[in-house]
Simulated scan of single mutants.
Amino acid sequence: MSGRRVQLPHVNCPACGGRAFAQTVGKKSLLFRELYYACRNPDACGHVFVVEMTATRSTKPSRFPTPLHKLPMTTWREAANDRAANDDGPPDEPESSVTVT
């Protein structure tokens, strides 16, 4: 370890679209972490929100024979291309059994 502080990626503020940066860490476990982000919009948006990080799958098996948690295994290509061809547009309207007259 070099002793450098780990920098988390910025995300866009859901309120104004400006850049938001991680301020503090909330709940955490081996597979889950909450990060508190604050908007740094120069127009003083001031929005603070929580982002959840969750380990969802493995792309390379662990070198340890007994992992503490077992995640589903996928290949790197599947993980990188997990968007289906039908994900390019808005979601379809749900089918309704009610007929409007």
Rank of each mutant, 00 (worst) to 15 (best):
3 G>D: 07
35 L>E: 03
101 T>S: 15
47 H>Q: 14
13 C>P: 01
85 A>W: 11
9 P>W: 05
15 A>Y: 09
35 L>D: 00
100 V>P: 02
44 A>D: 15
93 E>H: 10
51 V>H: 00
59 T>I: 14
38 A>Y: 09
3 G>S: 03
87 D>A: 06
51 V>G: 03
36 Y>P: 01
21 F>V: 08
99 T>P: 04
24 T>N: 10
88 D>V: 13
76 W>Y: 14
64 F>H: 12
100 V>Y: 09
48 V>R: 06
80 A>M: 14
16 C>Y: 04
97 S>C: 13
68 L>Q: 09
61 P>Y: 01
67 P>Q: 07
34 E>V: 04
21 F>S: 03
41 N>F: 00
22 A>D: 04
99 T>K: 11
97 S>W: 13
78 E>G: 04
33 R>C: 15
43 D>A: 14
53 M>F: 12
82 D>T: 05
5 R>C: 10
16 C>S: 07
52 E>D: 08
90 P>L: 10
61 P>Q: 04
25 V>H: 15
67 P>Y: 00
42 P>G: 05
70 K>R: 15
94 P>Y: 03
77 R>G: 06
15 A>D: 09
13 C>Q: 06
67 P>V: 01
78 E>D: 09
71 L>N: 02
36 Y>E: 08
44 A>E: 15
36 Y>N: 11
73 M>T: 09
76 W>E: 14
65 P>W: 02
37 Y>R: 04
43 D>R: 13
30 L>E: 12
71 L>K: 04
68 L>T: 06
63 R>D: 11
76 W>V: 11
57 R>Y: 07
42 P>M: 05
28 K>D: 10
73 M>F: 07
88 D>Y: 08
37 Y>V: 03
2 S>P: 06
57 R>P: 02
99 T>R: 12
4 R>T: 15
84 A>W: 08
93 E>S: 08
70 K>M: 13
11 V>W: 05
28 K>L: 10
15 A>G: 06
14 P>N: 02
77 R>D: 10
28 K>T: 15
59 T>V: 13
53 M>T: 15
86 N>Q: 13
67 P>F: 01
20 A>E: 00
98 V>W: 03
66 T>I: 11
10 H>V: 11
65 P>M: 01
46 G>W: 02
19 R>I: 13
69 H>Q: 04
2 S>R: 10
52 E>P: 05
48 V>N: 07
20 A>T: 02
26 G>F: 03
58 S>P: 00
77 R>L: 07
13 C>F: 03
74 T>N: 07
34 E>P: 01
31 L>W: 01
72 P>I: 00
27 K>R: 12
41 N>P: 08
50 V>T: 15
41 N>W: 01
72 P>D: 04
27 K>G: 08
7 Q>I: 11
21 F>K: 08
2 S>L: 07
18 G>P: 03
57 R>H: 15
86 N>C: 12
73 M>P: 07
56 T>G: 05
21 F>Q: 04
69 H>L: 01
31 L>E: 07
51 V>W: 03
90 P>N: 10
4 R>P: 03
28 K>P: 04
96 S>Y: 02
43 D>C: 09
67 P>D: 04
91 P>V: 01
58 S>F: 01
